[in-house]
Amino acid sequence: MSAIGELRRLKTTTRKKDNRAAFFFLLPWFAGLIVITAGPVAASFVLGFTDYNLIQPPEFSGLENFQRMISDERLHQALAVTFKYVFISVPLQLVAALGLAMLLDRGLRGLAFYRSAFYLPSLLGSSVAIAVLWRQIFGADGLVNQALSLVGIDGRSWISDPSTALSTLIVLNVWTFGAPMVIFLAGLRQIPAMYYEAASVDGAGRWTQFRKITVPLLSPIIFFNLVLQIIHAFQSFTQAFVVSGGTGGPSDSTLFYTLYLYQRGFHNFDMGYASALAWLLLIIIAGFTAINFWAAKRWVFYDD
């Protein structure tokens, strides 16, 4: 027996051993994948082609659910509201996060304090309690209008006016810029200070330095935050639900996609249609993520 043969045999035996151990260690995860995640994804695809109300067994209905989507005006409203929310609040949130991260960078005194203060809202922001608070402060006699009346402006009820209700939720999402800010801060720390020193010796101003050094070197992190926050914003639910009392009102102006899905599925128990809606959401999110990755080739700069 050659040594190489011996080694090879040894390698295959350890590999076999690993397989068994891996199966044991991954058993909970495999079970979860089948029962809790991947299984239901497949199941909801099948249910999307049925009519199902939880009481009678599902009935195959072909493309009916998808035809219904085309003429469902509340769905169109939900899509419009959600797109508006995502594409206004995410850029604002990221600009605020990056701006603050740059102000806090480079050994600012009291950094830990500021970072905590700006980060705290992103922990609180998704709670029902903050949604309750938002309902008060943007109400007719709420905090915002009290403050405005001090300077002689008569505010309106921001929450019950269809033209401003969504904006209050956008403000709430921007308010939680702390989490991406902390990620930006970690990224900024990776940029060597000598790049900036060299640039300022060469006479580059702050704006040029930002455009030529900060943005390219930070671009993988900007991209990462963008992808993450878009996915996150598409799934917003709690705030719209609590602020509108579960209706998505006034006049469906805060009818987030997930809220509409909830109403169809868990109020009307229209499980077939809700499944089809769920798949449409998955396709939309996957689509935007794919577009993001495709566009990233043009502007994201990888050093290695």
Binding site: I36, T37, G39, P40, V41, A43, S44, L47, L54, I231, F234, Q235, T258, L261, G265, F266, M271, A274, S275, A278, W279, L281, L282, I285, T289
Partner: peptide, 13 residues
């Protein structure tokens, strides 16, 4: 990246 909304219906069932 999987939204919970995509799996909630079959899970609920």
């Amino acid at each position: 990246m999987l939204p919970i909304h995509v799996i909630i219906v079959p899970q609920y069932i």
